[in-house]
Design a protein around this nucleic acid. Structure first.
Length: 633
DNA sequence: AGGTAAACTTAGAAAACTACTT
DNA sequence: AAGTAGTTTTCTAAGTTTACCT
């Protein structure tokens, strides 16, 4: 439908409305990138900073008497604090977390800490607790909230807008800038990712006495709520945060900082891409260096060379050491252990294959079989000799020494710059390769863009949980195309391809081959159309009239049209299937130089809205304003 | 040099919202 | 009005790098 309407140059209803909204919005945003003295690099982050402080989480509302927690089958009224913590668990009752042992153990331990003596003596077994009624109560409340009248919803919306007006902005060097997270995190149960040893622990309510305020000496400092005091008010212009506190699970500092659309964030982002572009000019030399170092007589240098090879080729993260037992067991490059790789001298007819299998950031699995240089392979054999699976692969290396070395090669160079550089350069190359300048169709251009974006997401291993009901949705889509059984083909072989995918031609051929192996409704239509064309042709041969000729021409046109439609449907289905477990957003937001996208849009007259939504346009306003189609990363 | 804390970027999940159907 | 699929926004955990200390 979308394609059809675009073809006819129509705008969809919501797009028209969006345009109207945009016109209404006054264009008085500060164009900081037009100022002359951008990106100066003294440690001073601001000269003047004034804000209203954080918004505290709403206070706990006790349960109505009718809603009862039960212990051992009997209703039990709890003290206020114990009740509050109980509701945290009740709200998560249907979540997978509550089936995990660590979660339950940690929750129960922390819950008991807030119980009264009597409560503690009674409630000794989580298994005897019945949270069901409480859970149902909160579910009902959400339903009620959803079902409120329009007027009620509007009223709340306006109240919220007023709150944002007051607390959501600050004065930063005379400019009104948007704050990112001005609401403090509410109390609840800690939801660690993966196998986190602290999952289920109680995240305490933050009170003013926990809060450090940072603002100008000569500003009007935010007031603590009546009867309370801030922990501290400081005036540190070397940092960018407005509010900080220490979180009680890991004992780490958390901050309130500005929104990505702000100058301070935007400039930093811009600078990040400039450093990555600088790496582009140095990378050949750096690669030569680490190739040479693969044979170094010093073990640390050899390890560094291999690590760098991985970071560059596979876009691995640096991999800091982690204190064990404090968080999930995840690794990056420098913290890889022997058990995370398997060495195959030969595999599937290829030489020197390294099979990676480890959990990375957020416990996302990285699985990949990669052919490596012979010398890299030899080194890996050497590094793993006489070691146990649990031993460090790079025992002479850590992120600190690696980054020190990188910094000596180029100012500002650290391990993560390679991810930024490789992501951005890949997007640029892929766009060049995948965009068909002769194809006028906007939606096919967008598909090319998404495909290029996907190559990057695959490179960076940005995954997501498959959407709920994915297979049904896919099924419906396939019905339209009418093709059978291509779903399985994709998911099975897919991961094996994943990292070879930088060669996009391969993706394309791969997907086409498999899709067209199926049986299509559309294909049946085409077969019918061909039949019709054939008979029209023979009609025309028997009776060489102008009318018959035209009829025959029309039939031929119809075949072409159907074939075009078929390709579009295939491509859409392919896109959806391939996106099943790949998240495009992270790379778009954090790794891809926005100027590449902006330049590409300008070159092919694609509206920027097709690539970036409102938030993204705000974040990348600097890039949108400053670049034309000639920009090269 | 190496350990630790602070500051800041990157990350996927979940909630909220939107457009459209039923 | 309720349901649903798709998209955007929010949330906050989990990384990296820098700063600081001994």
């Amino acid at each position: 439908k979308k394609i059809k309407k675009e073809k006819h140059g129509e705008k969809r209803k919501h797009e028209v409305e969006q345009d109207v909204k945009q016109k209404k919005e006054p264009e008085d945003k500060w164009k900081w990138w037009e100022e002359k003295d951008n990106a100066k690099d003294s440690g001073v982050k601001w000269k003047f900073l004034e804000h209203k402080g954080p918004v505290f989480a709403p206070p706990y509302e006790p349960l109505p008497k009718t809603v009862q927690f039960k212990y051992d089958g009997k209703p039990m009224k709890l003290s206020l604090e114990a009740e509050e913590v109980m509701t945290f668990y009740a709200k998560m009752l249907d979540h997978e977390y509550t089936s995990k042992n660590d979660f339950n153990k940690n929750f129960f331990g922390d819950w008991r800490k807030v119980m009264t003596k009597e409560e503690k003596s009674i409630i000794s077994d989580l298994g005897k607790c019945n949270f069901r009624d409480v859970c149902t109560y909160f579910q009902q409340k959400t339903e009620e909230r959803k079902a409120r009248s329009k007027a009620e919803k509007l009223e709340e919306k306006q109240k919220n807008e007023a709150l944002v007006e007051e607390f959501g902005f600050c004065d930063w060097d005379g400019h009104r800038e948007k704050i990112g997270n001005f609401r403090l995190e509410p109390p609840g149960l800690f939801r660690g990712r993966g196998n986190h040893p602290k999952m289920g622990k109680l995240k305490k309510r933050i009170i003013p006495e926990d809060i450090t305020i940072n603002c100008s000496k000569n500003s009007v400092a935010p007031k603590p709520p009546p009867g309370h005091k801030w922990k501290e008010v400081r005036h540190d212009n070397q940092v960018t945060w407005l509010v900080s506190w220490t979180e009680n699970i890991q004992n780490q500092n958390k901050y309130i900082m500005l929104n990505p659309s702000s100058r301070v964030k935007g400039e930093k982002d811009w600078q990040k891409y400039e450093i990555a572009r600088n790496l582009k000019t140095k990378v050949d030399r750096i690669r030569e260096d680490y190739m040479r170092d693969l044979k170094s007589s010093e073990m640390m240098i050899r390890q560094r060379a291999v690590a760098l090879y991985f970071i560059d080729k596979l876009a691995l993260r640096a991999g800091n050491e982690k204190e064990d037992g404090e968080s999930a067991d995840t690794v990056g490059c420098c913290s890889l252990r022997c058990e995370h790789i398997k060495l195959h001298k030969q595999l599937d007819g290829k030489d020197f294959i390294v099979e990676f299998d480890f959990l990375g950031k957020d416990s996302i699995r990285y699985y990949n079989k990669v052919p490596v240089l012979k010398q890299v392979f030899k080194n890996l054999v050497l590094f793993t000799e006489n070691k146990e699976g649990g031993d460090d692969l790079f025992d002479r290396l850590n992120t600190s020494t690696l980054n020190k070395y990188l910094n000596s090669l180029m100012e500002g160079l650290t391990a993560k710059v390679f991810r930024t550089y490789n992501a951005s350069i890949t997007l640029q190359n892929q766009l060049l390769e995948l965009t068909d300048p002769d194809d006028e169709n906007v939606s096919s251009k967008i598909l090319s863009y998404n495909r290029a974006n996907r190559a990057v997401a695959v490179l960076c291993n940005h995954q997501r949980a498959a959407p709920k009901n994915f297979s049904e949705q896919m099924g419906r889509m396939n019905d339209k195309v009418g093709n059978c059984g291509f779903n399985g083909i994709f998911s099975v072989d897919y991961l094996c391809l994943v990292h070879a995918i930088l060669d996009s031609a391969e993706i394309f051929h791969y997907s086409r081959r498999h899709v067209t192996n199926g049986w299509h409704k559309k294909q049946a239509d085409i077969r019918d159309a061909k039949q019709e064309a054939k008979s029209a042709k023979s009609d025309y041969k028997h009776n060489k009239s102008e009318g018959k000729r035209k009829l025959y021409e029309a039939k031929k046109k119809k075949i072409e049209r159907l074939q075009e439609q078929l390709i579009k449907l295939e491509v859409q289905a392919t896109d959806k299937a391939k996106n099943k477990e790949i998240a495009l957003g992270t790379s778009k937001l954090n790794y891809l130089d926005p100027r590449i996208t902006v330049a590409w849009c300008k070159k092919y007259a694609i509206p920027i809205e097709k690539c970036y939504n409102k938030t993204q346009r705000d974040k990348f306003a600097w890039a949108i304003a400053m670049v034309d189609e000639s920009y090269v990363f």
